[in-house]
């Protein structure tokens, strides 16, 4: 369970170009559910996702994960929280060019010093489960849009994180690939994982898979639908 209480995020605070990206947001996100943050560009969805995923710290308010307050934690603890709790799929997937799919997928676990063979095996299993077995040794810049997305999902899941965070995961995908993504989300939910994503794609937030939709406008939550 993730809980936000009166969370505000200011960028460039006190300067003329200061922005209130998230403004006094309070919400609860249930475990083992699929939650979608929707709203127009600039509404604060991505910033809220960063705050939930411990990638940014709130300027005010509290973020709690499973009853633990994480918003005031120092950087090293936040990293640990990110590593153990969240897997991220970024809007542009943010795979590292020049590395193969396998190397990208192994990357989150690399600094933990695991047995390289066991890690490679686990990564290949993840890649195969997402239908990319034949692309494991291909540099990521040679993948199609859908393949890149699946590689990014495999990377997000390599540390067996219970929560998947995805920022506009279908923004650049066609209808067929969007449905395939939703199939993956269904599998993740079936595995008992929590999925939180942003989207202004109606194919996503109108899907039966989605348990909750949170609507945002100008950094504020303007509606929440179960």
């Amino acid at each position: 369970m993730i809980s936000l209480s009166s969370v505000t995020k200011l960028y460039n605070e006190g300067r003329p170009n200061g922005v209130r990206a998230v403004d006094n947001v309070s919400l609860d996100i249930g475990a083992d559910a699929v939650t979608v943050l929707k709203g127009p560009s600039g509404s604060g969805k991505t910033t809220l996702l960063s705050l939930i995923g411990c990638m940014a710290r709130p300027s005010a308010g509290r973020v709690m994960i499973d009853g633990r307050m994480v918003s005031g934690l120092p950087e090293s603890f936040l990293t640990e929280e990110r590593r153990s709790t969240f897997g991220f799929v970024f809007q542009r997937f943010n795979l590292i060019r020049g590395l193969t799919v396998l190397e990208n997928v192994m990357l989150p676990a690399a600094p933990l010093g695991p047995d390289p063979q066991a890690l490679a095996e686990a990564a290949r299993d993840r890649i195969a489960a997402l239908g990319l077995a034949d692309k494991a040794d291909t540099p990521v810049e040679h993948l199609s849009g859908g393949e890149t997305q699946r590689a990014a999902i495999a990377r997000a899941l390599i540390n067996d994180a219970p929560v998947l965070i995805a920022d506009e995961p279908t923004a650049n995908l066609d209808t067929d690939l969007t449905h395939r993504f939703l199939d993956i989300v269904a599998d993740l939910r079936a595995e008992g994982r929590t999925v939180i994503m942003t989207s202004h794609d109606p194919r996503i937030w109108q899907s039966d898979l989605v348990n909750a939709v949170i609507e945002m406008q100008d950094g504020r939550v303007t509606g929440a639908f179960a």
């Binding site: 995923g53 990638m55 090293s76 990110r82 943010n94 990357l107």
Partner: peptide
């Protein structure tokens, strides 16, 4: 961007510095 990605996917500051 690469440092940001590494940190987001679970590398901590000491991993990046190392």
């Amino acid at each position: 961007r690469e440092i940001g990605i590494l940190k987001a996917i679970g590398w901590n500051s000491s991993d990046v510095i190392a």
